[in-house]
Design a protein around this nucleic acid. Structure first.
Lengths: 347, 347
DNA sequence: GCTGTTTCTGTTAACGTACACGGAAACTAT
DNA sequence: ATAGTTTCCGTGTACGTTAACAGAAACAGC
């Protein structure tokens, strides 16, 4: 079995030196046309691929990746992203990657600004961030572009072409999937309720898109379907009571779609609704429990842990391996979680 | 920002040389107790992790991984595994991994024996294989153990403790999931048909397990459920007619579970069965089309491409990085595919 | 005191690539 | 013809780790 071709071999075969071959590989000029073409030819014939290990060792750079994400506690939505990041920290440690974490509070934009400034001060080579604070993020990205800071975006479906990679899940299609599942549970259904439980002062575009998707699925059916969107803030003290009223006021109700991760907040209003199909979002611990107890039927999983890990992986490949992704957008598949699938979603 | 600790640094701090530090790292003995403890202490304090690049470069080994799998054409089940392997070939090329493919024909066990012998002759460092020919595989694995050939198993749920990694999906749980989906589609259903379309002379244990799982789900319900298992060989010329008769003879039929990838073979018997829930296995191109046309409701996806890729990745980590997996069994999550999810399963 | 053995330690040459440096050769301008 | 410039090329060192090797130090047996 022949050994893998190296620069040295190519130098020998082309009657040049490794310096010249190296210049050809990196397009660094200062090579005669005849030598260049000859070397390129030989490389192609031997199917030469640079040895990644030697390459990285010679470069011997330690890359610093900043991760900018909302502060969270265990069991909360953002914490699942953090879990993916934590795994990547140990996985990439021996590969010359240092990951710096920068937290901020979603309801205090000042903390976002402070953290994001620190990202620059610490001289990171790239930053991974979550496009949740739309306005602040756009300003931050502008700054990244000015300062030539590489960045990757996670959890959004609106992509930025300058990002190394955009990783997100299609919210519109998620809404369609929820509709499909609810419809499959009772093909004769005609009355649906969509819950938009929003955080005070925080307009979430993705949730809007999900609701649009949900509607679009039923709009394609032949019969007339009645879909009511009920919007309420999660800070509302009478959340459960108001929802109970809403549900009881519609005795013909066939299905409920909770368009974000807040299913667990309305649990008490959903008990004893066996005849209604219920689909929620995100496999938080509390949501999974509702699934396990049969109170809801499905959860749509956004794979946050995997998204975060993948984000780091792409930045690593870009920084260390010089690999640019074929496409700068990764559409994370919608994942359907039912009771019988719960075993795969242990914390 | 302090640089990453190296062997050299540790040698300096412990007043020894890199040789001694190296011996401590690799437990190669020949180190005085006092030095060993001191060096271990310093490594712990500095949180030392060996530089993977330098390590692999110094070892400078090219590992050969054999992949033993059934010959297949595009669109066939086994071809999806091959796709994952092909991706890994290019991904791991620059990391010192050569992947050799060995094909065999499922219905000619002689070809398996021939190919598997070749695996040894070519002096591979490890082999990845699919536990489909139960008897031949067990003989081959015995030989692997004798000759100290590392191996990884894919696509099975029966694990071998000596394997570097076992990757598979739980067929029993898959059957339960199929039952759950069918049940959700019509909670009042009581009559179900399970199709076991087997290859002549090829007893597939996994399919049996799926059927057991399917039954177990309904056995837990309070009411009496009627489940008929219809077994037929795929070579049967009257396959479709026999199935049509079977379906028509049971006017109360509520759901059908096709327990393997052969859903597309019985397509003609399934047309115009809108009131029956139908769940099949595996996202072959022809099966996906049935999903798209609304003829069936769900497919359970085994993620063959991902399984194959992961198998190579584990072997790589084991061979090159000396990493032993925390657990030698990876339970691939069951993936539910519906019409609205089809976009994620492009070929 | 002299060998021979055991125990321990430091040195050194790879591994393949990146890049700086010095300098040879060819060409230009006067 | 000579000095200056441009074009091109090879050498050498570094990156962190591995593993072979040489050899110092301590100790045993006589």
């Amino acid at each position: 079995m022949k050994a893998k071709p190296t620069i040295k071999l190519i130098a020998k075969l082309s009657n040049t030196s490794i310096g010249t071959v190296d210049r050809v590989i990196h397009n660094r000029g200062d090579v005669s046309q005849i030598n260049r073409e000859n070397i390129e030819q030989i490389m192609k014939e031997l199917d030469y691929v640079p040895n990644t290990f030697a390459r990285s060792l010679a470069l011997n750079k330690i890359f610093k990746i900043a991760v900018l994400l909302p502060k969270s506690k265990k069991g909360e939505y953002w914490n699942y992203y953090l879990m993916g990041i934590k795994k990547s920290i140990s996985d990439f440690k021996s590969l010359g990657i240092i990951i710096n974490l920068y937290f901020y509070h979603l309801d205090k934009t000042i903390t976002f600004n402070k953290s994001s400034n620190q990202v620059f001060k610490d001289e990171n080579d790239a930053v991974l961030l979550f496009t949740i604070l739309t306005y602040e993020t756009s300003i931050f990205l502008k700054k990244c572009k000015e300062k030539k800071m590489h960045f990757a975006l996670i959890g959004s479906h609106e992509k930025d072409n300058d990002a190394i990679i955009n990783i997100g899940q299609d919210p519109y299609q998620g809404g369609r999937l929820a509709a499909e599942l609810i419809n499959y549970g009772n093909k004769k259904g005609e009355n649906y309720l969509v819950l938009n439980i929003l955080k005070l002062g925080n307009l979430n575009l993705r949730v809007i898109n999900r609701i649009e998707g949900f509607k679009s699925f039923f709009a394609e059916r032949s019969k007339a379907i009645n879909i009511e969107v009920f919007t309420i803030t999660q800070e509302d003290d009478n959340l459960v009571d108001k929802l109970k009223n809403k549900i009881n006021s519609n005795p013909k109700l066939n299905g409920i779609f909770i368009a974000n991760s807040k299913t667990y907040m309305v649990k008490d209003a959903l008990l004893d609704k066996n005849d209604i199909q219920i689909v929620g979002y995100d496999t938080l611990k509390k949501n999974k429990e509702l699934l396990n107890r049969g109170i809801i039927d499905f959860l749509i999983h956004q794979q946050p842990t995997e998204q975060a890990y993948q984000g780091i992986e792409f930045l690593y490949r870009f920084l260390v391996m010089n690999e640019t992704p074929l496409t700068n957008f990764i559409d994370i598949p919608l994942d359907i979680v039912s009771k019988e699938k719960l075993m795969y979603y242990k914390e």
